[in-house]
Design a protein around this nucleic acid. Structure first.
Lengths: 184, 184
DNA sequence: CCGGGCTTATATCGCCGCGATACATCGCGA
DNA sequence: TCGCGATGTATCGCGGCGATATAAGCCCGG
């Protein structure tokens, strides 16, 4: 999850942790945050896996203005060849995981680097997922409507409207995609 | 988090794990799920803490139709006195945690059992939180708009609209609350 | 009558993300 | 010069999630 996001950002340019998090916020917006408590462990995992590497070159010894102090330089990460491979691999996969709440937003953020047909499949998968969830809630709501107090009811209905909105949004996106890339 | 939800549901009637989860889905709707992987550990923790207790009485020996088999009866949980205390305590607290994304929905679901003034404070806190987040995203968006590709942009804007919607919803709720309970 | 598949039911495991926290450096204005 | 806010790296424990295991009760068709 974070993995995909990090690969995507580093795909554009090498970055250090802090900057990476700024970009994460700027790219995913109100959608998702990702704290350092996720980021650094993730970076370590990815480094161990060999997808990314530390890029010396920014923290180099500049004839050390303050050389005595430990001088912990910025740790700049960049994609390795395997990392690039992994990234395209992740971009290509359009399985159920790609359209779950958390995954979807990240996938979507890198749609410009994703194959058009994959884009459509993900959008449709996402929409189907939401519609199915919505029907579940709707029917359960119909069954228990009178037993619920007004607050619970309002919560449910606000939720349903949100889902409706997202479904409509997805439908527009799908149509746009189809116009640009006619089926077959 | 789950703790509050469980206390709230058991406050109405004793339930066993499975049923508890059904109610959770019915009550929180599209808002939040809570898997068994969260529920059972949480029940254990709450039992250890003394908020809930196993209620024998459903799985009692009915002159055992199938008595030889291990016959694992349903484990029915009910609130203890401390549990009720804990519940009202949690309902009363309107701190920053109450209006974070995850907490808010659960708190809201039990608003009918919450003091009117606490309700308003939580709703306002939530709204303020969202507005602050929105401004952060907005300004960051204004700064980097031209650098983003169209997909990222659409994601951001969809996100912003969602936040707007929720802010409007909250404002309506606050006004309704105020009408029913005029300030002071 | 029995076997297969669905729902009900309880439970655990490892992973991952989160918030809190701890440091340490740097530039800036009071 | 002092302190504060931004930059920067890092860890810890906790809580939730999805996958998975297990098993009993169920009804329907063969």
């Amino acid at each position: 999850m974070l993995e995909l996001a990090v690969l995507g950002l580093l795909h554009e340019s090498p970055l250090h942790g802090y900057e990476l998090r700024q970009r994460l916020k700027a790219t995913l917006g109100s959608f998702r945050a990702f704290s350092y408590g996720s980021l650094y462990p993730s970076l370590r995992r990815m480094k161990d896996a060999g997808w990314i590497a530390e890029d010396e070159g920014d923290a180099e010894v500049v004839a050390g203005a303050p050389p005595l102090t430990g001088k912990r330089g910025k740790v700049v990460y960049k994609l390795t060849a395997e990392g690039k491979e992994r990234f395209t691999e992740l971009l290509a996969e359009a399985g159920p995981s790609s359209w779950e709440d958390e995954q979807f937003g990240v996938h979507f953020a890198f749609f410009s680097k994703t194959e058009p047909e994959v884009r459509v499949r993900i959008l449709e998968g996402r929409r189907a997922r939401l519609e199915q969830r919505r029907e579940g809630v709707r029917s359960s709501l119909a069954r228990t409507r009178e037993r619920l107090d007004s607050y619970t009811l309002q919560l449910q209905e606000h939720g349903l409207e949100s889902v409706d909105r997202e479904v409509r949004w997805l439908s527009e996106l799908i149509e746009t995609e189809r116009r640009n890339v006619p089926p077959r």
